[in-house]
Amino acid sequence: MKMKLPLQHLCFFLMLAILVLLPFVNDSRTLMILLTQIFIFGILAMSYDILLGYTGIVSFGHAMFFGLGAYTTAVMLKQMEPTLSTFFLSIVVGMLLAGFISFLVGLLTLRLKSHFFAMLTLAFSGLFLVVAEKWRSVTYGNDGFTFRAPEIFRDRMTFYFFVLACLVVIFIALYRFVNSPTGRILIAVRENEQRTKSLGYNTLYYKVIASIVAGTVASLAGSLYAISLRFVNTSVMTMDITLDALLMTIIGGVGTLVGPLLGSAVIEYAQHALSGLARDYPIFERWIIFFGILYILAVIFFPKGIIGSLRMMFWKWRLKRKGINQSSVTLSQEKERFE
């Protein structure tokens, strides 16, 4: 792994340079919006992967944290002055709320089998969706409401750079997190929780930490999403958001940070393209079906995603070059990684 690092860093800076320079080359509105959207969902998918890919727990309530962030920002910007400081305050409030709720949910269910967490997060996010629909005096229900974004974000390009900066900061922070001692223990929990426990680690504590980190980062993504639309309604709380995060993580590659970003790019672009097609072929209005089928097929046949498969090919290639026929060993190791 050590040897690969410089190459990874090079790729990272190259990609960043392209993304920074891109608006000066082509600043078409559609492209800016699409890229901003990709970044925001990239943040969401990365936070999801902390749970699914690194800790090996399935949450079906990620939309609840996303929605929490979106509503906090929207409500605060509407009720108070739409200034930059309000915006930053709302991000902090949203993250604190999300952190608290993920702490609560995690504490209740992470002691038990993975099923319980999946189920309880699903139930909780269902509750949040209903609250968002019924608490009309604040959320305006399903109709939603528009609000004024801070002056500086009216410009698409400024907002693009702001979201890109957020993405880079979050990416580096999460990269540090998963490579920290805590992150290593999370991976150990994924690999074998019993053994980690018997080594003396309180696995519940680490799993709750993972759930809090994932929740707060998802809330940030929600805040950015609200600003990007300058409108919020109950759709930010629906299952579709969780499905998006799931799909991006699985298509891109679980257990990596680059995977979800790549997945976000693929899915967002596909949605963009499919909604274009829907004008001519009405069947594409139900694009969730295609994504659902794609997702089922990916889980069965392609469980490691794009990055995971590429990585496995790379390993095989390196082993072959060294003349060691260990591909079967690597394969079984890789297989265990996911299970």
Binding site: L52, G56, V58, L243, L246, I288, I293, V299, F338
Partner: peptide
């Protein structure tokens, strides 16, 4: 059957089916 014995995959795949079934209703 294809994901028998793998909890995470089972959870993920049945949720996917749920969404497909729900959307198929609309179609």
């Amino acid at each position: 059957t294809p994901v028998y014995g793998n909890h995470i995959q089972q959870i993920l795949i049945t949720l996917g089916l749920m969404l497909v079934l729900q959307e198929m209703i609309k179609v």
